[in-house]
Simulated scan of single mutants.
Amino acid sequence: MARAALETMYFKGELIIHHKNGRQKAYALAEKFLSAKLLSAKSPFESELDYHQQLVLRRIGTIGFLWNKRSDAWLGIDHFKTFERNQAFQSLLEDKKITEIQIEGISTIFYMKKEDEKLLTSLSVNPKSPARMEFLAPLDNLLWDRNLIREIFDFDYKWEIYTPKEKRKYGAYVLPVLYKNRFVGRLEIERHTKEKVLLVKNFWLEDNEVFSKSRKEAFSTCAEVFRAFNHCEKVEYVKGWCKENDQK
């Protein structure tokens, strides 16, 4: 109850996070650190509908497209039930701020920002994806709605950090691996700060995926980028790190 009360006060702007000790947060009254002028400032939203519209539009733009369904992508939006969500989507459609799109083979309608239509058109004209690989963080924007990812990419991802060790299928901190326009695997990787080493422990390929020469090159390039981002000096690989489909 105490945690729920603190988080409620934090999201209402009555508290701030003063500092952290590991994972433990230390809160303080906002009025002691923020000016009275700032705390008493008028809301930038003209109405609750305006507030919902702005946040829905922002969430759609952050991911690229979304559906009008119950979703983790809407977490943190106050007073946002089915009625309010439908109202926000309808208003955005009428204002021509979003547009409907459909994906071949999927009956559900998706929505994207109207201003992103040119980008989608350019990709349709030149559909060849660059040979680029990315290691995605478990809480990456694209992964906010796991059901959407499962529906579109046929990729079933679960962040197992809160799953008991004996029940984990892969590992506590496993990153989805995106290559071109598809999810090709899951990566378990560790940063050893003292040794300044990025250790690749496991890479599980998805069914029907192969670790071709071009994918190996893309993986190596991405690993080097990830190494630099994590302030490591080298990348090391555990023996047998790449798990082919029949090894899972």
Rank of each mutant, 00 (worst) to 15 (best):
K114P: 00
F65N: 02
K113D: 09
F11C: 14
S91Q: 10
L57S: 14
H79G: 03
Y10L: 14
Y51E: 00
V125A: 14
E151F: 01
I17M: 08
S40H: 13
A2D: 14
Q102P: 02
V235L: 06
R182S: 02
A228S: 04
A4S: 10
N141P: 09
A2K: 12
K32F: 07
L198C: 14
R23E: 02
L55H: 08
E188V: 13
L75C: 01
L139D: 00
K234E: 02
H19F: 12
L175H: 08
T221R: 08
I152Q: 04
K167V: 02
D72C: 03
E7I: 11
L136W: 13
Y237N: 12
E48F: 03
K128S: 11
W204Q: 09
Y111G: 09
A88F: 01
L39P: 04
R85P: 03
N202V: 08
Y170K: 12
L123S: 10
S212T: 15
A223V: 10
L75M: 01
D207S: 12
L66Y: 06
T163S: 01
Y237P: 07
I60R: 05
F110L: 04
H231C: 07
H19C: 14
N202D: 13
K113C: 09
K114S: 11
Q90G: 00
L66W: 04
L15S: 03
V174M: 10
A73D: 05
M1C: 03
E206L: 13
K37Y: 03
Q24S: 08
E244I: 02
T62Y: 08
N141Q: 13
S91R: 07
L178Q: 13
P164G: 07
K42P: 08
L38T: 06
E46W: 10
D140E: 11
K42T: 11
E7W: 14
I60P: 01
E104H: 05
L38A: 04
A41K: 07
S220L: 01
E160F: 15
G61H: 11
E46R: 05
L39D: 06
C242I: 15
K169T: 00
T221P: 04
N21K: 12
A137D: 11
K114D: 03
Y51W: 08
R3W: 09
R58W: 09
D78G: 06
H231W: 05
F226H: 14
K194V: 10
K69H: 03
L148Q: 12
H18Y: 14
V210H: 15
L142I: 04
K158L: 14
K37M: 01
L123C: 13
E115C: 04
I98T: 00
E244F: 09
N68D: 00
L139F: 05
K169D: 09
E115P: 00
I16S: 00
F110N: 02
L49D: 02
E104N: 10
Q54C: 11
F83S: 03
